[in-house]
Amino acid sequence: MFRLTNNLKNLTLSIEELSANYTNLQTVRWQRKPRWLPVAKSKVFRIPKKPETPQEDNLELQRLFNNYRTQIKSLRRHFFYKHHIQFLASEDPEQQRIIFEKDLDRCNKINDKWNAEQKVLREKRAQENLEVELEFARKRIEVENIKREEHKQKTEEYVKKVKEESKEFITAENIDKAIEIALNNPVDYNYALTPSGEKIFGRENNEFEVKEKISVKQ
């Protein structure tokens, strides 16, 4: 537990709120001193002042407590006389059994009646719940179907696209032709780029470009 300490901030009466960081807080001991420890040395000669209650308070409290105690005592005696076995009239056991059975019969009837009422309610509620659940399941199926359809469409589109692209793939049949093309058209990527996108080839690898240049000059 923590307690806010009195620091300078409080004395200057600043409007800003006290920050909740731990510099403002002081730990407070959680438990009290155990009863069996002796009186602290500093408290040995301390004499607590006797509490003084005003006369009218005393009189009023006395009246209230007297009333309360008298009434509770009376109620207690009332219950004692009413329920204590000593004061209960002893009856014939046969008679008591008959009374008990009658009472049981009556209770059973009431119970059966309640059960019948509850049965109707329960069945109705079960039926309603079933309806709700069936409806829910139907909706789920519909949603699932739509999802599946969408997925199927997407897949088909993808396959179509891939098929389109695969026309230019190199296969065993056209590999010779591809090699031929590659050999006839060597490409040199060893160049530098200017910010405007112009390609600058070096001195040693400009063989093809030079040819082109020559052809251009011609």
């Binding site: 009218e56 308070d57 009189l59 009023e60 009246r63 209230l64 009333n67 008298t70 009434q71």
Partner: peptide, 14 residues
């Protein structure tokens, strides 16, 4: 007067 509840107070000033 003994009644349920507060009853008539001795010191009404309270």
């Amino acid at each position: 007067n003994i009644t349920l509840g507060l009853g008539t107070p001795i010191s009404p000033s309270l």
